[in-house]
Design a binder for these strands. Structure first.
Lengths: 189, 189
DNA sequence: GTCTATACGGCGATAGAC
DNA sequence: GTCTATCGCCGTATAGAC
């Protein structure tokens, strides 16, 4: 148990550094030396925890997925589906400043991995699949069973587009405006 | 003149290859050797036309901008603003198959360069500025002067989000559905 | 202007002492 | 489990003959 805790401690530091650096400068640009330095772990020791760089990419995806799981649990505590949908939008708006600088944590990672090809590209669609499935559930609860999947896709799509525009123009307000539009849309459904 | 034509011939081949490769596999992943091979130009000779790799990135941006200029001229030939807006959406839909595989030619490039940092990141927002300005003009002509910029941003944003979703799920139909939604929206304005 | 050969640095990955 | 040293490759860029 002590051994596992220690091991998880260093591994976690590495993953945390990898997530942060990949978000700020991109996965491909981030070197193992960067990750080692940021996490205070000697370069050679990284390979005890991860056999390849792609294994770190996998761990990054896991973190992003677990972050969604945590958010989903928080949304579940809200009174109804409309509140959950609205809060999902609000969460993105609250993060607008980061998004305008580095892009959407899910979207920018997904876009990069998709271009990279390989196993990580294939796995990356799980990032959107989770939220979309959950949002479709909420639309169903709102009585839009037939078009629930479409509505959920539209919501995620709109947030991604707005995030890219906000990043491109380096203007958080762009994301806020599109977010407000989405909240009006949700309120009217 | 002959000299210029010859020079432009090889330069054009290099740029064409660079645009295609950067679209298919990403700018960063594309090496000068890749570009040299694809265009049939020896590696060492590339540096006669481009001092650095970033200079090629610049040329790629120029190509994308000139492609927008060509599209804008074609849209100008249409009878009215509503037709221009609708056709812009249709153009993306027509390219759905490529978008689902490689992403939006503008969006995926923009996203990658934005993460890369440096001069190319700064320059990349020109990709969206052109279309958005033009679309805002069309919305103004439709009598939405006050919110024209907002509407144009929304249109571009929606297309970008839909493109990313289509790429992520490798499904052109996703883009078609969101495109249809946008066309209905335009028709109702 | 063109092309071959190569320098130079950086990155992923490994060896092996401790 | 940890860490230093280093290998081997690849990518950008340059030298210099033609």
């Amino acid at each position: 148990m002590t051994k596992n805790t220690t091991k998880a401690g260093k591994r976690d530091k590495l993953v945390e550094a990898a997530v942060a650096l990949a978000y700020r400068q991109g996965y491909r640009k981030t070197t193992l030396a960067d990750i080692a330095e940021e996490s205070g772990v000697p370069l050679g020791n990284v390979y005890y925890y991860f056999k390849t760089k792609d294994a770190i990419g996998d761990a990054i995806l896991e973190v992003r997925e677990s972050q969604w799981a945590a958010l989903r649990d928080r949304l579940a505590a809200l009174p109804g589906p409309r509140e959950r949908l609205t809060d999902y939008v609000d969460m993105t708006i609250r993060n607008a400043s980061n998004v305008a600088t580095y892009g959407c944590p899910m979207g920018s990672l997904s876009a990069e991995l998709l271009k990279g090809g390989g196993d990580l590209a294939t796995r990356s669609n799980a990032l959107f699949a989770g939220p979309i499935d959950y949002m479709a559930e909420q639309f169903r609860a709102l009585g839009h069973a037939a078009e629930a999947e479409d509505l959920a896709l539209h919501l995620q799509s709109a947030l991604q587009g707005a995030s890219l525009m906000a990043q491109s123009f380096r203007d958080p307000d762009v994301l806020k405006r599109e977010g407000d539009r989405l909240k009006v849309w949700i309120a009217g459904l």
